[in-house]
């Protein structure tokens, strides 16, 4: 009882502290100066139709590099924790997915992969981007893994994909120092025609690299978990 009332009190204090955001909130009439600057100058400086992408990949590109690193760290730690057991330990086999699931996953798999590639290649033009596209690819792999517990993407392929895309991302960023204004500057390539696939300088390449990297990491996590034959009963 004491525990519950303490928790309730704490939640109430927390909610009250946040409630000031609501009670003090006045609907703004104009954008603040940062947003105004991004919305006015983004098209001439970066040339991406999606302003959010320009902020994520170019203006705050270093943050995104850190974010990708965090995701890589997560994938490696999970791989480390779930490393395979020693030989001789009993292997518990998971049940196969139902007929409906395995048939549907075979039909949906190619489409999901293509959708993921489409989402990250068009990240500078439409809503979406590398992380979203990578997540769609990860979902496709998860679907296959649910239908067939034996399924595993080759670890070697995943490691190579992940490492190559990560290294390419950093090299493109470093090229920005020598060929343009600074680290991760997208103007190492011509900005091109606004609103076309090949525009916005290096953004499509960077976002594709992020997409491949995130997709490979998520597939790696799913494969790791799928291969851990833990008896969960």
């Amino acid at each position: 009882m004491l525990r519950n009332s303490l928790i309730l009190g704490l939640v109430a204090v927390f909610a009250l502290a946040l409630f000031t955001i609501f009670s003090e909130y006045k609907t703004p009439e104009t954008l603040n100066r940062t947003a105004q600057y991004y919305n006015e100058n983004e098209v001439s400086q970066v040339g991406a139709a999606n302003v959010v992408t320009a902020v994520v990949v170019t203006y705050r590109g270093l943050d995104t590099l850190g974010e990708v690193t965090v995701l890589f760290l997560t994938a490696s730690v999970i791989g480390f924790i779930l490393r395979r057991k020693k030989k001789g330990e009993p292997v518990v086999k998971a049940d196969k997915g139902s007929e409906i699931l395995s048939t549907a996953s075979r039909i949906l798999f190619p489409g999901s992969i293509i959708l993921g590639v489409y989402v990250f290649v068009n990240g500078h033009l439409t809503p979406g981007g590398g992380f979203q596209g990578g997540a769609v690819i990860g979902t496709a792999i998860l679907l296959i893994a649910l239908a067939n517990p034996e399924f595993a993407v080759s670890r070697k392929v995943l490691h190579w994909l992940e490492s190559l895309s990560g290294v390419t991302y950093v090299i493109i960023g470093l090229l920005g120092i020598f060929l343009a204004a600074g680290f991760l500057d997208n103007r190492i390539l011509p900005l091109g025609d606004f609103g076309h696939l090949l525009s916005a300088g290096a953004i499509p390449i960077i976002y594709s690299m992020i997409g491949i990297k995130v997709g490979a990491e998520l597939s790696g996590i799913i494969t790791d978990i799928n291969q851990t034959k833990t008896n969960l009963s």
């Binding site: 954008l31 940062t34 139709a49 302003v51 959010v52 994520v56 606004f194």
Partner: peptide, 29 residues
């Protein structure tokens, strides 16, 4: 509307009709 140049949102009126892109980028992270 969303800060993406398409349809009624043009390069000229982007800062009049689009919302703040920074919180959306932060939330993505």
């Amino acid at each position: 509307t969303a800060p993406i140049v398409d349809g009624p949102v043009t390069v000229e009126n982007l800062s009049q009709v689009a919302v703040d892109p920074v919180p959306q980028a932060l939330v993505l992270t």
